[in-house]
Simulated scan of single mutants.
Amino acid sequence: MTTITLVQGDITRQSADAIVNAANSSLLGGGGVDGAIHRRGGPAILEECRALRASRYGKGLPTGQAVATTAGELEARWVIHTVGPVHSRSEDRSELLASCFRECLRVADELGARTVAFPAVSTGVYRWPMQDAARIAVETVRSTPTDVEEVRFVLFDEQAYEAFAAQLH
């Protein structure tokens, strides 16, 4: 059974088998969590992302999918990159957000990762409402069969932490 834990803090400071990057489809870095992971992880992550773009993901990583690279200088073995959906008031994209978590757990299982640290995917510049994102994340992790022993949600601020904590009760 997978244990779900919550931490308020900086995901780039976590020690885990795999750290999830809320990436953009280019895989070439960006703002928020994505930029922070690329900056702290160093050039090895970008180098592997460029190789992925040159091979399997010429048009970028599709929304809801996940792929792994080295973690570079982070305290992890791997970074699992996933592209969350942009929130829409007119279209239900919940399944795409849930897919991010399922796909990350699938990739983690393929890698043999036992601890995975997730950010609050799609809640930054993609504007997904925190309460709803927390519900989808926790429900998806709870319902997805995996060999991952610990899923750690690393939440940047108190509001995010409280939203996720409310889903665990």
Rank of each mutant, 00 (worst) to 15 (best):
M1Q: 04
M1L: 07
T2R: 14
T3D: 14
T3Q: 11
T3N: 13
T5G: 14
L6T: 03
Q8N: 14
Q8W: 05
D10S: 09
D10K: 06
T12R: 00
Q14F: 00
Q14P: 02
Q14H: 00
S15P: 02
S15Q: 15
I19C: 04
I19E: 01
V20G: 03
A22K: 04
A22S: 11
A23K: 11
S26R: 09
S26Q: 13
L28D: 14
L28Y: 15
L28P: 13
G29N: 13
G29D: 04
G30W: 08
G30N: 07
V33C: 07
V33W: 01
D34H: 14
A36W: 14
I37F: 07
H38Y: 09
R39C: 11
G41N: 02
G41F: 05
P43K: 06
L46I: 08
E47S: 13
E47T: 13
E47C: 15
E48Y: 06
E48I: 06
C49N: 03
A51L: 10
R53M: 08
R53Q: 12
A54T: 01
G58M: 11
G58S: 05
G60K: 00
P62V: 09
A66N: 02
A68I: 09
T69E: 05
T69C: 15
T70I: 05
T70H: 03
A71G: 06
L74D: 00
E75T: 01
E75R: 03
W78E: 02
V79H: 01
H81N: 05
H81E: 13
H81P: 03
T82H: 03
V83A: 14
V83S: 07
G84I: 07
P85M: 11
P85I: 12
V86P: 13
H87A: 04
R89C: 06
S90T: 14
E91I: 03
E91K: 04
D92M: 07
L96A: 05
L96S: 12
A98S: 11
A98D: 08
A98V: 10
A98L: 15
S99Y: 14
S99K: 08
C100H: 08
C100K: 12
C100W: 10
C104G: 10
L105P: 02
L105K: 02
R106Q: 09
V107A: 11
V107T: 11
A108H: 00
A108T: 01
D109R: 12
E110T: 12
G112A: 04
V116Q: 00
V116G: 00
A117V: 12
P119E: 00
V121T: 09
S122C: 05
S122N: 07
T123C: 09
T123P: 02
G124C: 15
V125C: 10
R127N: 12
D132H: 08
A133M: 14
A133F: 09
A134H: 12
R135K: 06
R135M: 05
I136R: 10
V138I: 11
V138T: 13
V138D: 07
E139S: 15
E139W: 13
E139F: 04
R142Q: 05
P145W: 14
P145G: 09
T146W: 15
E149V: 11
E149S: 06
E149D: 03
E150C: 15
V151Y: 11
L155F: 10
F156G: 00
F156T: 00
F156N: 00
F156E: 00
D157V: 06
E158H: 03
E158Y: 08
Q159P: 09
A160D: 03
A160I: 00
A160P: 00
E162Y: 01
A165D: 14
Q167I: 07
H169Q: 08
